[in-house]
Design a protein around this nucleic acid. Sequence first.
DNA 1: TCTCACACCTTTGAAGTGG
DNA 2: CCACTTCAAAGGTGTGAGA
Length: 741
Amino acid sequence: MSLPMREPVIPGTSMAYHPFLPHRAPDFGMSAVLGHQPPFFPALTLPPNGAAALSLPGALAKPIMDQLVGAAETGIPFSSLGHQAAAHLRPLKTLEPEEEVEDDPKVHLEAKELWEQFHKRGTEMVITKSGRRMFPPFKVRCTGLDKKAKYILLMDIVAADDCRYKFHNSRWMVAGKADPEMPKRMYIHPDSPATGEQWMSKVVTFHKLKLTNNISDKHGFVSFPRSLDDLQGSLSFGWETPKRTILNSMHKYQPRFHIVRANDILKLPYSTFRTYVFPETEFIAVTAYQNDKITQLKIDNNPFAKGFRDTGNGRREKRKQLTLQSMRGFEERHKKEAGTSDESSSEQTAFKCFAQSSSPAAVSTVGTSNLKDLCPSEGESDAESKEEPPEASDMAKISTTTSEEPSKEKGISDRDRDRVREGVRLEKSSPDSRHSPAAISSSTRGPGCEDRKSPGREGVPKVPEEGRPVLPGKETFTPLTVQTDSPSHLNPAHLPNLAFPPSLASQQFFSPLGNGHPLLLHPSQFAMGGAFSSMAAGMGPLLATVSGASTGVTGLDTTAMATAAAQGLSGASAAALPFHLQQHVLASQGLAMSPFGSLFPYPYTYMAAAAAASTAAAASSSVHRHPFLNAVRPRLRYSPYSLPMPLPDSSGLLTPGLPSMAAAAAAAAGKAAALATSPASVGLDSGSELNSRSSTISSGSVSLSPKLCPEKEPSTSELQSIQRLVSGLESKQDRCRRGSP
DNA sequence: TCTCACACCTTTGAAGTGG
DNA sequence: CCACTTCAAAGGTGTGAGA
């Protein structure tokens, strides 16, 4: 691929945003010059031949452009230019894809059965002020990577919907609208970057990521670079990623896993993301467990909670023994007082239950409500069989490989039972064992097992001794739910908050064959949630794509996609696009999006204007010569969820956080400053959504997920209505642009 | 609903030991 | 030196009382 030389300066085009940039206006000396609020920075394009092409959103920036070009050509660091903004710029060269290597990454969730056990009961994850790990730990096994290419693996946790939950009558119920989400952070696996061979040789775990509800938690912010210099500095001291992510209690979340082919973390923001979502890893954040079943599952499976197991010598057992003693004392007193021992009084019944409950074998056979706390599994199993009939059979199935049933361990000593239980647990936690026995040892050591032998974070990872590449293609992969964007939301239910029609916002590439194709996400989809919210937060709004090169793209017709893509390119053929752009376009079925859509690492507030500006710019024919600029990129949101949500009317399309479409249009028409200074969170998201919507709708090519909201396909009138709105926005933008020098 | 101290447990790595 | 064991510190658990 080659970029044109000295592309003419076209206002409002080719804006690249540095994801590590702080986005408060005062931090950007350049913004005033450019006539934009940050992050409307110019992108410096460096074609392979070394010559520079530069686009700046504004002729006023020409001196800066010249300086940047000169610096790029002479190799002078941008930071030496004196411009605060220039210090953060980097050549667009990094936007170009690496040498394209055939890879078809597939990701297999480790301990899938365990995850499913939890999921059936409604997985809860405890969040504390200091942070708690996830259990089950999020582990994946990667295959299909190019052995020699380097990859960066990441994960984040985003809100699954727009609801707050409560645990009522032994089940989770929606209890209102979600609280505002904190900026989401992207956790970069400390071994990143590493070669595909290295990643495939081991189970990739993210157990070091902790969940917190401490909104003032700084862990992850302070260590994250805010500028290129910061980044380089941090790299020299070892890459630090956020170790905690902030969640809201009683809210539902969905972990996501990302694969980025990049040999340098510096390139991360400009690389293509493949994002994998495993629905069974969805969970509700809690400060205290609500569901006893979940508690029991955790106790049974988490080695750190061994002390609470009924079969062990832990606290539970001792507590029960103590209680048993007191109950016996009570019984004796009762006998003395009553003078008989054959009474079947309630106390005796309770005692009997309690006595039996102290034996693991008896737990599931007796129980009264007043001893529920002592016989948790009993009451639970009852409730479970009543409430979740399918689960019973499932559990029976699972029980063959788990330690669910203490009764089976009758006659075994406590310690042996523990060993048995533990052994089973380990086996269970490594479903891949059948494929890769060598990997079992690495994946079955419980939390913390992986990093011990994993490459250090010094940047020179060594090949784990236990690891060998997993045979690709043998596993049945989790159906890959393609889902994009949404720095903190996944679900269409969030759309009201995002000012995006659900039908457009919650689309999904779903692989009916379940062969786990990723969605490709472009780093531009990163969204900086808040100030300095780390790259994690910055990696929000990602371009939704599906690997067109991957085999067996299911549910999507590649040809159709290509056609649609070409249609959405406004003159540029999809084939002429750079590889990653093709992927975006193809995978997105030609869903058009912002032509400058490569880099959106910033709060949506900014992007609202950016989207409109770029959309308007895209309308001008002169832009289309630039392959990169020509890339009318699809930018949609895909949600793996199909949670019901009311279809908002046209007014409902607008988020409370975003005053109105008119306001957004106004912002897009040049009032970005007002939005830019608005609080983050909702407003930011709204802007992003607006961006997505405007760019998407303006292209007129919209594909809907058949799975997600089948009954919520946008009516033609609705789409037209939206389109009219956006058209107005664009024309307004056009007028604005024409009026500017 | 949340926080905290607590007991119990695993993990981790240093120190010690023997070949 | 290497492999193995021992030991202690660090840190991960759910619990239960209290706010």
